[in-house]
Simulated assay, not measured.
Amino acid sequence: MRRLRVLHRTIYVYSDVVSSSYGRAFLTPREFPGQHLLSHDIRVDPVPSDRSVGTDVYGNTTLYFHVTAEHRRLEVTGESVVELESPTAPDEQPTWEQARPSGENGPLAVEFALDLTPPEIIPEVAAYAAESFPPGRPLLEAVKELTARIHTDFAYESGSTTVTTRVADVFADRHGVCQDFARLAIACLRSLGLAARYVSGYLATDPPPGKERMVGADATHAWAAVWLPGDGEGLLGDGDGHWIGFDPTNNQFADDRYVTVAWGRDYADVPPLRGIIYTDAKESTITVSVDVAPLEE
């Protein structure tokens, strides 16, 4: 059992007055077997004139807010305490062919096997995926190899891509960040007819030996999850089979250091913060800091 405190702060500064700001935030960690949300709060400054909390089609908690006070600076801070358990692998593991969505609960996962619009599955990605998925291979064994290959073949370069970068460009350039590697892995699995989710959240990182943790050194993280048929809950379970998280950026399956905030078919479904402002400002800056710190039980 691991208990973590997450502090996620986003600050926007504008060169002119903003008269109205609408925002939507995915900052509330999910609740499911293996992850328990003990406390949570989202603070917005200036204080919104209107705010509401809802649930999207995937069960993610989302906050809507509207700031009507004139401002040149907007700060959104999410603070959470979560309790995590180490996931356990399913007792039986199907071959990857058997893991394609089908059967009694397959329809709940089938949309996660479909390509995006515009398409992300290109012939090169499909061929790359096929190398790890020979006929009859156990699913998680194949996923483990694919995870390791992406980790080895693609360089992590902060700032080398944006949220609009296509999987085809990442594959051609051989570099990117965590969200790119998660999306590449998802496209690989979907090219084989497998169901895969994009997962947004946080990762508790350990400091180098002899060094103290640096506040704000952590960042939002992204990884993927693959679907296994069955009636279990799994790491990201919600009653529709097993979902097993895996992280190509760090070459491992997700464990009790991973705090899940939201999941969807792609990054566009679950950005941490998105909004619309009304202003004559020509310039703006954004500063994001995330701190994931262990707490004593």
Rank of each mutant, 00 (worst) to 15 (best):
E145F: 02
S160Q: 04
C178F: 00
P118R: 01
T165N: 07
P135C: 09
E120L: 02
V143F: 04
A168H: 00
S132D: 15
H175G: 01
H151R: 12
P138W: 12
T152Y: 05
E131F: 08
T165D: 05
G159T: 02
D180T: 06
A130V: 09
R166Y: 02
R137T: 11
E131A: 11
A126M: 12
T164L: 14
A187H: 02
R190L: 05
C178I: 03
T164C: 02
I121C: 13
A168F: 02
D169A: 14
S158D: 09
S191W: 04
G136L: 08
H175E: 00
T161K: 05
V125C: 04
A130R: 12
R190C: 06
A127F: 00
T152W: 06
H175D: 01
E157P: 00
D153K: 03
R149K: 13
T165I: 03
T152A: 14
A127P: 00
P138E: 04
P123I: 13
D153G: 07
R166L: 12
E124N: 10
S132Q: 07
R183S: 15
E145K: 11
E141G: 13
L139S: 02
A126G: 06
S158F: 15
T147W: 02
L146K: 11
G159V: 05
L184P: 12
V167G: 04
L146R: 11
T161L: 04
S158R: 04
V170F: 07
R174M: 05
L139M: 10
I122C: 13
R166I: 03
A168W: 01
F181D: 12
R137K: 15
A182I: 01
E141K: 15
I121H: 08
L146D: 01
I150T: 13
T165H: 06
Y128W: 11
T164V: 14
Y128C: 10
E120R: 14
A126E: 09
P135K: 13
F133Y: 08
E120N: 09
P119W: 01
F171Q: 08
S132A: 12
F133C: 07
I121Q: 06
T161V: 06
G159P: 03
Q179C: 12
L139T: 04
K144L: 15
F171E: 04
H175S: 09
G136S: 10
A148Q: 13
D173G: 02
G136M: 10
C188T: 03
I121M: 10
E141H: 13
A187E: 08
R149F: 02
T152G: 11
V125N: 00
A168N: 09
G159F: 00
Q179E: 15
T162S: 14
L189A: 09
F171R: 12
G159Q: 09
Y156D: 00
L140N: 10
I150W: 11
P123R: 12
E124T: 13
E141N: 14
G159A: 05
I122F: 06
E124I: 11
V177K: 08
L146N: 06
P119N: 07
V167E: 12
A182C: 10
Q179P: 02
E145N: 11
I150K: 13
T161R: 02
A142L: 03
A130M: 03
P135A: 15
A127D: 08
F171K: 09
I121R: 01
